[in-house]
Amino acid sequence: MLSVTQLTCQRGERVLFQDLHFELPDAHWLQIAGANGAGKTSLLRILAGLTEPVQGTVLWNGVDIGAERSLWHRDLLYVGHQGALKEELNPQENLLFSLGLEGFESSPAAIRNALQQLGLHGREHLPVRYLSAGQRRRVLLSRLLLRPARLWILDEPYTALDVHASQVLTHQIEAHLQQGGSVILTSHQSIPLSGGSCLTL
């Protein structure tokens, strides 16, 4: 369970939000909504532990995320705005390295399988430079299949996805919730998932 208390975020001199409270139990999802520049990404970055909040605490299962950073990051999967994809490497290499740098072993077969599920069959060995924006998003989202985690934080996961890929993503999120995982995501669209709550900044 993730619990957030009295969170305040400041960018430069501007206070984006203050005194934010919420809790996210296991097997639940939360959508963070708000206008552009309302601080959605800033909030996600604070939750992930990239930015230190001006005030307030973020607890994961009762422990401050800053206190046990490596445990928190083992349970967390963060897919940000930027791709974290290397243009010079192909999807397979990209995934192999990004999983390896996080200390997870993965076989080439498993990676190929995940890429296939997201409809990237036959593009495993093409440098990412030659992929479209939507295809790059899919490479990123295949991390969801490969890297075990209990909480997913997804920044605009539906951006640039076509109908089919959106459905695959929704199924992935459902399966993750069923296994007791939780999800925080930002989106401008309404999300075709039952349950869940929405936080507007």
Binding site: A48, G49, L50, S70, L71, H73, R74, L76, Y78, G80, H81, Q82, G83, A84, L85, K86, E87, S98, L101, E102, G103
Partner: peptide
């Protein structure tokens, strides 16, 4: 830094210093 890899490294359960 530009493509977000550094962010992923900082969020790795492995030691960031070692990376």
């Amino acid at each position: 830094h530009a493509d977000g890899t550094l962010e992923q490294m900082a969020l790795s359960p492995q030691s960031f210093t070692l990376l």
